[in-house]
Amino acid sequence: MIKLFSLKQQKKDGEASQRTGNTKKASAAQLRITKDINELNLPKTCNTEFPDPDDLLSFKLIICPDEGFYKGGRFVFSFKVGPNYPHEPPKVKCETQVYHPNIDQQGNVCLNILREDWKPVLTINSIVYGLQYLFLEPNAEDPLNRDAAEVLTSNRRLFEQNVQKAIRGGYVGNVYFDRCLK
């Protein structure tokens, strides 16, 4: 048992001998993100950009799929890791306009591990693989872009053409997509 009372009396006398550190200690989020970033194991289709290398909490992920519907495209995602990481997932937005059943025009991404299925054991790497998977296997069942999902289920050929049209830049239906060729 700690006897705070007697110990503190001693402490009061010896207060000056305390080591005065004016350097703030790294936060738990910082400790964890350093680990996550140092161990990022990116697939060859992915790359990262850090606008400020001192700020590991905010960066971009660039995915250039080399197979599937989205081959040839270049898609940029922004990651914002909050102070409550890894208790809360990072905020991920798609900065490239993309014709995709699980990504809407505002860049919201419907990936379960980014919201309802996030767990602190998951890492930035898990999200990278999750996002890469979205491009290989777009999921029409729980869509964010309904039109794209309907086309994917009813006519895969047309879906493929729409995706390529959007990547090259142009209208799909009445939505205009900026060119995002690799």
Partner: peptide, 28 residues
């Protein structure tokens, strides 16, 4: 094996060196 190092100076984070991420390695 391949350590990455960060620190905190006057309350702001500083990346000293991270060897595994090209974008950071170049700049640190």
């Amino acid at each position: 094996k391949n350590p990455g190092l960060t620190t905190t100076i006057n309350g702001s984070n500083k990346t000293l060196y991270i060897p595994t991420i090209e974008a950071i390695e170049k700049r640190t």
